[in-house]
């Protein structure tokens, strides 16, 4: 039994041990065990209400876990505010509903956190923002406001905004579920590029094509538990778990 405290392995990006989460009396997450190495891409799927979003929201303390341990990039997630700040600086997050700041231009959205949190001077922050907007293929929208963009464009800005903090790990919480179908691929393409660059990624998504192309491991959750954990080819074709097979048949055969 190797416990992480004694051996901080620099290759490990995330370790969750025996984590439980309750909402009142509702047991939302049960005994979660998960280890993610640097550069790994994890896709998390499962029926709605299975705790996928709650799990990744625990990783940057948008939700507080009730027991167990979470160690992110070598920093233990506990009540120490300094630790929480450190983890949030190094972990980027992309939300289902984009959550861009509507009162700021795209560029302001991107430079805000680097300037306030990383104390970057404005010229450097803007230069970096434009570089990442280029990477998500919308540098020409920098001076527009989020309300003037399509859903797909907004989500790409949200990805650029997270990247501007130069995070070591990215969390995606159903990044394409709120998009019109014709906009899904432009966001997935950006995520594929990001994966190819070696970013550590944890994605909650039902885009099984994306999982096949990009994921190193697929994690299946149901009723707050991790039911199965397998490389995509095994997961999609040779799962021996009844609930997994049922879920896959529901989302693939329609």
């Amino acid at each position: 039994m190797a416990t992480l405290a004694q051996s901080p392995n620099p290759d490990i990006a995330l370790r969750i041990e025996g984590m439980n989460k309750y909402f009142g009396n509702f047991h939302a997450l049960r005994n979660i065990e998960l280890t993610v190495t640097r550069g790994e891409k994890i896709v998390v799927c499962g029926p709605s209400g299975s705790g996928k979003s709650t799990m990744i929201r625990c990783i940057n303390r948008l939700e507080e876990h009730n027991s167990g341990r979470i160690v992110v990039l070598g920093t233990e997630l506990n009540d120490d505010v300094g630790n929480i700040d450190e983890i949030r600086r190094e972990v980027g997050m992309v939300f289902q509903h984009f959550n861009l700041f509507p009162h700021m231009s795209v560029l302001e959205n991107c430079v805000l956190a680097p300037m306030l949190v990383r104390k970057l001077p404005r010229p450097q922050a803007e230069e970096m923002a434009l570089r990442f907007l280029e990477k998500v293929r919308i540098p020409e929208q920098a001076s527009k406001y989020p309300g003037q963009l399509s859903g797909g464009q907004q989500q790409r800005v949200a990805i650029a905004r997270a990247l501007c903090m130069q995070p070591q790990m990215m969390l995606f919480d159903e990044p394409t579920s709120a998009l019109d179908p014709e906009m899904i691929s432009e966001v997935l393409d950006v995520m594929v590029t990001l994966a190819a660059d070696g970013m550590t990624m944890i994605c909650v998504t039902h885009e099984m094509g994306f999982a096949r192309r990009v994921a190193d491991r697929v994690i299946f959750m149901d009723r707050g538990e991790i039911i199965e954990e397998a490389p995509p080819e095994t997961f999609f074709t040779a799962s021996r778990n009844e609930r997994t097979r049922q879920f896959l048949s529901q989302i693939l055969n329609h």
């Binding site: 997050m93 939300f95 805000l112």
Partner: peptide
Amino acid sequence: AHGQGEAAMALGLS
């Protein structure tokens, strides 16, 4: 929107 504060938190804003 609730997500505004969460997005700002996730970016590390105090």
